[in-house]
Simulated scan of single mutants.
Amino acid sequence: MIEKLIALRTRLLTAQRDLIRVAAEAGTHPSDNALRKIADIEVTIGAIEAMMEDLKKR
């Protein structure tokens, strides 16, 4: 299960970095939708990391 969580975390980090890169290259303020997506991914990554830590303690 940890391997699947690591893979999911990696995919989400890539998606988040892509969104940030696109926002930076646009040269304007990111849209509210883009900011929300970036923040939502960050929260999800945190939840995945917490779950991974929990599984490691077992």
Rank of each mutant, 00 (worst) to 15 (best):
M1I: 03
M1F: 04
I2S: 14
I2R: 15
I2L: 07
I2Y: 11
I2C: 10
E3G: 10
L5M: 12
I6Y: 15
I6N: 10
A7G: 02
A7H: 13
A7N: 13
A7Q: 15
A7W: 14
A7V: 11
L8K: 15
L8Q: 13
L8Y: 07
T10G: 05
T10P: 00
T10Y: 10
T10R: 15
R11P: 14
R11S: 06
L12T: 09
L12Q: 15
L12S: 09
L12E: 15
L13T: 08
L13C: 10
L13M: 10
T14Q: 09
T14G: 05
A15T: 10
A15K: 14
Q16S: 02
R17V: 01
D18M: 14
D18Y: 14
D18F: 14
L19T: 01
L19E: 04
I20V: 15
I20F: 12
I20P: 03
R21F: 12
R21D: 11
A23T: 09
A23C: 11
A23N: 10
A23M: 10
A23E: 00
A23S: 14
A24Y: 14
A24M: 13
A24V: 07
A24T: 13
E25H: 08
E25I: 08
E25V: 07
E25C: 04
E25R: 12
A26R: 14
A26K: 15
A26V: 03
G27S: 09
G27T: 07
T28R: 13
T28M: 12
T28I: 11
T28A: 12
H29A: 13
H29D: 13
H29W: 13
H29P: 11
P30S: 00
P30R: 04
P30N: 02
P30T: 02
P30G: 06
D32K: 11
D32G: 15
D32H: 10
D32N: 12
D32C: 12
N33M: 10
A34F: 11
A34T: 13
L35C: 08
L35Q: 11
R36Q: 03
R36L: 08
R36C: 01
R36A: 06
K37R: 06
K37I: 02
K37T: 06
K37S: 05
I38W: 00
D40K: 07
D40Q: 05
D40V: 00
D40Y: 01
I41P: 08
I41K: 01
I41G: 00
E42A: 01
E42N: 00
E42H: 03
E42C: 02
V43H: 08
T44C: 02
T44Y: 05
T44F: 02
T44W: 05
I45P: 01
I45K: 05
I45T: 01
G46H: 00
G46S: 03
G46L: 04
A47H: 12
I48Y: 07
I48V: 07
E49S: 07
A50L: 00
A50T: 07
A50I: 04
M51A: 06
M51E: 06
M51S: 04
M51F: 00
M51D: 01
M51Y: 04
M52E: 04
M52T: 06
M52D: 03
M52W: 03
M52F: 05
E53N: 06
E53A: 10
E53G: 06
E53Y: 04
E53W: 03
D54N: 09
D54Y: 08
L55Y: 07
L55E: 14
K56A: 07
K56H: 02
K56Y: 02
K57S: 09
K57F: 09
K57C: 05
K57W: 01
R58F: 14
R58A: 14
